[in-house]
Simulated assay, not measured.
Amino acid sequence: MSSDRLFIPSRETDLGDLSVRRVLPYAARRMVGPFIFFDHMGPAEFHDGQAMDVRPHPHINLATVTYLFEGSIQHRDSLGSDQIIEPGAINWMTAGKGIVHSERTPANERQHDTHLHGIQLWVAMPEELEECEPSFIHYPKTDLPEFETNGVRMKLLLGTALGKKSPVLVHSDMFYLEVPIMKGQSFPFPVEAREAAVYTVAGKVQVDDLEVPQYSMLTSVDLKDFTVTALEDSHIMILGGKHLGPRHIFWNFVSSSKERIEEAKLAWANGPQNGNPRFTPIVGDDHEFIPLPNPIQK
């Protein structure tokens, strides 16, 4: 990461019982490869009936990726999916032409103190796939390859990197890795002519000659290989890939087409409904929804 590097501090947002640190999109760097959204959730503690309750809401023309370090989330969507998301697993939801989903603390976790810690990403879709049929696929943690580089243990969550390939079905060239690294350890990372970013979940690392402290990201579009060194015991995520071109964002909608986002706004104006061409209700979670913000944008 010798040139064209940008340091991005996370911006903390209080969502009631859950604190979220937003990193992407950022004013000076909207995307890294196909990744257009990066939220670090928690670490949070829930007590005395507290819980995460993200009501049904819509997406179009993107894929969401939820990965937990601790805790659990019940994912439901308008396809009929009902999946408990647990630490170490990858949950890939392709919104395509339109999907509705909710994310809540599971019922059996609400009776006692719980913790939640993880990251949610949005991935832009290639233009020719933006309006594909929606889908949801859960990949258990045992499916994801773990390996060592220079004695550093890491897990490949998405795409290809370091000669390994994740089994997760993705739609463009990308990489996403989880790396716990001990103080003094170091490893080279071959970018392979792709954009890249390093985010520090905990601890402090050095990427080439720049420090990346906790809750911050260093991004680069110079397509150069780099070396990571741990300045203390740390936990980092590495992500990036081929850039897909600019995307427009309004709220939960991402698309290469402004007109399509306007269509999605109209389709969500009264929430999910049977017969809606984009957004139908979630069976078992259809008593409320998040209304369209106006003019608030993410």
Rank of each mutant, 00 (worst) to 15 (best):
G49H: 11
G49C: 10
G49T: 14
G49L: 12
Q50M: 13
Q50I: 02
Q50Y: 03
Q50V: 03
Q50A: 14
Q50L: 03
Q50H: 06
Q50W: 01
A51F: 04
A51R: 14
A51N: 08
D53G: 00
D53Q: 11
D53F: 01
D53H: 09
D53A: 11
V54L: 13
V54D: 01
V54Y: 02
V54A: 13
V54N: 07
V54Q: 06
V54S: 12
R55T: 07
R55L: 12
R55E: 03
H57K: 12
H57E: 09
P58A: 11
P58I: 13
P58T: 08
P58N: 10
H59V: 09
H59Y: 06
H59M: 07
H59Q: 07
H59N: 08
I60N: 06
I60P: 00
I60V: 15
N61T: 08
L62F: 10
L62A: 12
L62M: 15
A63P: 00
A63V: 04
A63H: 11
A63Y: 07
A63G: 12
T64M: 05
T64N: 07
V65M: 11
V65C: 14
T66C: 04
T66S: 15
Y67P: 00
Y67V: 06
L68K: 11
L68V: 12
L68C: 09
L68P: 00
L68I: 12
F69N: 05
F69P: 01
F69C: 06
E70T: 14
E70S: 12
E70C: 02
E70W: 00
G71C: 06
G71H: 06
S72F: 01
S72I: 01
S72E: 15
I73E: 02
I73W: 03
I73K: 04
I73Y: 02
Q74V: 03
Q74R: 15
Q74N: 15
Q74W: 06
H75N: 10
H75S: 06
H75I: 05
H75G: 10
R76Q: 15
R76A: 04
R76L: 07
R76I: 02
R76P: 00
D77N: 10
S78L: 04
S78E: 05
L79P: 05
L79Q: 12
G80N: 13
S81P: 04
S81H: 07
S81Y: 06
D82K: 15
D82G: 01
D82F: 09
D82N: 15
D82W: 08
I84F: 01
I84E: 14
I84Q: 14
I85Q: 14
I85S: 07
E86L: 08
E86M: 08
E86V: 15
E86A: 10
P87F: 10
P87L: 12
P87W: 11
P87K: 13
P87V: 14
